[in-house]
Amino acid sequence: MTALLRRDLKLAVRAGGGFGLGLAFFLIVTVLVPFGVGPQSELLSRIAPGILWLGALLACLLSLDRLLALDWEDGTLDLLATSPLPLEAALGIKALAHWITTGLPLVLAVPVLGILLNLPAQGYGWLVLSLLLGTPALSVIGTFGAALTVGVKRGGLLMSLLVLPLYVPTLIFGAEAARRGATGMDPLTPLLMLSGITAGVVAIMPFASAAALRVNLR
């Protein structure tokens, strides 16, 4: 199992783009927001938690179509399906690799981007914490979307259509926790809800993903 994780990480580093693209996208979205809504710092600091959460979510989404498509094209998924590794575990590992290469860098980069949007000082900790708890769910749900659409040529847009509605609960609780943290309210309730969703999704979604992938491999 660690072999698959090591391979995916190695590929992400070597093929480039793995770490870089998502982060660059996140940066650009964040920079574009003030152009769209105006430079008033009190407005920016009010919407900063939501914008940063949304940016992280879109950056995650952007890299999803590479998650399984490459392994599908070169036949790796066929071979993995006939290997002793259960497909559920393989997809769980691939989601983990996606989180390490996409979600984790976003979490680490978000304080810097928070400065650009005048995020209130008390909000940084809660924003990072909420992203840390929420982004794994984004990767796991995204893996499900990728497994559903892996057989569709140019399925990237379709996958966004399928995955984005599934992101609603995570986004709501994540952004709510970050917002409450930034405005000095108690963020504990949404944080607990967010953790609950992440825990549930991590436990159950690999089975749904594997079921979808098996159908596509037939």
Partner: peptide, 23 residues
């Protein structure tokens, strides 16, 4: 098969979204 799986998963997330939106 795939739409059925999506419908199952979607139902769970629709209920979750309902509560999230209420909150």
């Amino acid at each position: 098969d795939l739409t059925s799986v999506l419908c199952l998963v979607g139902s769970v997330f629709a209920v979750l979204s309902r509560y999230a939106v209420n909150f």
